[in-house]
Simulated scan of single mutants.
Amino acid sequence: MRFDIITVLPGLLESPFAHSILQRAQKKGLSEIIVHNLRDYSLSKHKNVDDYPYGGGSGMVMSIEPFAACIESLMNERHYDEVIFMTPDGKTLNQTMANELSGFTNIMILCGHYKGIDQRIRDLFVTREISIGDYVLSGGELPAAVLVDAIVRLLPGVLSDETSALSDSFQGELLDAPVYTRPADWRGNKVPDILLSGNQAKIDEWRYEQALERTRQRRPDLLK
């Protein structure tokens, strides 16, 4: 699975993709993450990628030409299943969306900055707009990293235990059940006896009941 990420701050994405699961996925050849510097496509002498907004107002708007040039250059090389713009007014990312996107082959992600990007880029090229929450960040780079992480960990072969992702919170619309590891007794705080019983059917039943109760307490909206 390939991700092409367009950004004005490529250095901001170096660390998230160079460690842990995302690094392992790339080394295994299961995913490819390419970061493109938007300034490379600027026609300006000083490599500017923004300009004043029509109609006045505060802030700067990312220009249409660099984005269009980069997008069209990439589209000439391959077909993209989705061209995603990370924006606070997009549809909120959830597990169902991550599951869907993990079935695609090529995804392009646009990272905004400043006051936003020229609306014509959104109208002409973007196929999906995604938010990671009801708040505003300095740019779309961190949301892009969140999105890629949520997708890549679902790809077959990325996690050591492929069933692990299937039991995560929000899979099946429930939060995950409590988890424990050794020692079984720590300062008088003991692991529930059922988890030490060896009865897998009973353990699975307990985990489901715990997940249901945790969801009821913390995210009752999911049970609707």
Results as ranks from 00 to 15, higher is better:
62 M>G: 04
63 S>G: 00
66 P>S: 02
69 A>V: 13
70 C>L: 11
71 I>F: 08
71 I>G: 01
72 E>R: 14
72 E>T: 13
72 E>A: 11
75 M>L: 11
76 N>V: 00
77 E>L: 14
78 R>Q: 14
79 H>G: 00
82 E>C: 08
83 V>S: 12
83 V>Y: 05
84 I>W: 01
85 F>H: 13
86 M>N: 01
86 M>I: 04
87 T>C: 01
87 T>A: 05
88 P>W: 03
88 P>T: 08
89 D>W: 10
90 G>Y: 00
90 G>M: 06
91 K>W: 06
94 N>K: 13
95 Q>R: 15
97 M>A: 10
97 M>V: 12
98 A>I: 03
101 L>H: 02
101 L>V: 04
102 S>M: 07
102 S>C: 09
108 M>V: 14
109 I>A: 02
111 C>N: 08
112 G>S: 02
113 H>C: 01
113 H>Q: 10
114 Y>K: 09
114 Y>Q: 09
114 Y>V: 06
115 K>T: 07
122 R>E: 09
124 L>H: 12
125 F>D: 03
126 V>G: 12
127 T>E: 04
129 E>W: 00
130 I>C: 04
131 S>F: 04
132 I>G: 10
134 D>M: 02
134 D>W: 12
134 D>I: 06
136 V>Y: 06
137 L>A: 07
137 L>Q: 02
137 L>M: 09
142 L>K: 10
144 A>M: 03
146 V>S: 03
146 V>T: 10
148 V>Y: 05
149 D>K: 10
150 A>C: 14
154 L>N: 04
155 L>C: 01
157 G>I: 02
158 V>E: 08
160 S>K: 15
160 S>M: 12
162 E>I: 01
163 T>W: 04
165 A>R: 09
167 S>N: 15
169 S>T: 11
169 S>H: 09
170 F>D: 13
174 L>C: 08
